[in-house]
Amino acid sequence: MRALTVVPHRAGSLALTEVPDPEPGPDDLLVEGLAIGICGTDREIVAGDYGWAPPGRERLVIGHESLGRVRRAPPGSGFAPGDLVVGLVRRPDPVPCGACAHGQFDMCRNGRYFERGMKERDGYASDLWCADKSYAVRVATGLGMDGVLLQPSSVVAKAWEQVDRVGARAWFEPRTALVTGAGPFGLLAALLGVQRGLTVHVLDRVTVGPKPSLVADLGAAYHTGDVEDVMASIRPDIVIEATGAAEMIIGAIAAIGPYGIVCLTGVTPGGRRITVDAGTLNREIVLENAVVIGAIDANLSHYVAGARALAEADPGWLARLITRRVPLRRYTEAFERREDDVKVMLMNE
């Protein structure tokens, strides 16, 4: 079968290659691959910056944002041929640590987890793939190909869950949220915020293209400009940070109000330094009982929550989030950065 593969840490190695068909185990679904979403991590892997092949192998099948159709399912699994499904990304470490042993492999303590399409396990960019029935989630049929948005939705579902858990340390009744960044993670975070009944604001640097109208059509407010100025005007209770930009992160932390929560979901590249008044920053966080947390990846409960959020969303709005749908035969185009891109989907023909 065909699979999109790379040699990790070797730039220019991306290729559509022939690999053996998967052999499903007794608890595995056999799935026809329909599409994968492309994100910044995929581009880093293709650029040779990241990724590990399965042990004993040179090449890694990429693709962690999956969508497929079940061909064969184990009896009693709860799945049936024809179901649309998404495979989970992370797998618990083999030791396992305490978190992994309790199904919270997104919070692995020792770093020995595996990740499909990234770390020692093949991803989903292939004609066929297998997934243990415990690591797959059914997607509402009505979502169709837009079900490929489930993996990023699961990550922001986790972010909102973590905000709830931190907020529950005392009386917590947030009303206003700011999402920094109007990429796929930011827009999906805004969607979940609106679904929670919050007044949602989104901050991004662009003034043209699809992002401002996507935010407006959620019933949220779109802003450009300095993060501290925006926060001073709207006074958010919660910030979901989805850019990974160092200046944005520090600005949000510095400007959050009393009992405010800043949840970081964007990963900042290393190598760039900025000057921070750490003493003042510490003083403001401590004296105002503010909290800064990080959230990455997701476990099964977050995928389920993400699937529910997508099923409740406006299908037309979700479809507009996917701004390019690229056939597999033109796979190189999916990794090009274009000005009006929000989410790029690579489709099996």
Rank of each mutant, 00 (worst) to 15 (best):
P22V: 07
G25M: 05
L29H: 00
C39N: 13
G40H: 08
T41K: 05
R43V: 00
E44P: 01
I45N: 07
V46I: 15
A47S: 14
G48Q: 10
G51T: 02
A53S: 11
L60F: 05
S66W: 09
G68M: 03
P74R: 03
G76S: 09
V85L: 11
V86H: 10
L88E: 14
P92C: 13
P94L: 06
Q104N: 12
F105G: 05
F114R: 12
R116N: 15
M118F: 08
M118P: 01
D127H: 10
D132L: 02
K133N: 04
S134R: 15
Y135D: 03
A136D: 05
G144I: 13
G147P: 05
V148G: 02
L149M: 04
L149Q: 00
R175K: 14
R175D: 11
A182N: 07
G186T: 00
L192S: 04
R196E: 13
V202R: 09
L203C: 07
T207I: 11
V208T: 15
G209H: 09
L218A: 10
T224K: 06
V230Q: 10
I238F: 13
A242P: 03
A246W: 01
A246S: 14
E247A: 14
E247W: 00
E247K: 07
M248D: 13
I249F: 08
G251S: 10
P258V: 12
T265Q: 09
T265K: 00
G270T: 07
G271E: 11
R272A: 04
L287A: 08
N289T: 08
D297N: 14
A298S: 14
N299F: 09
G306T: 04
A311S: 15
L318V: 02
L321Q: 07
I322M: 11
R324T: 06
P327G: 06
L328K: 03
R329I: 09
R329A: 15
D341I: 00
D341M: 02
V342M: 09
K343N: 02
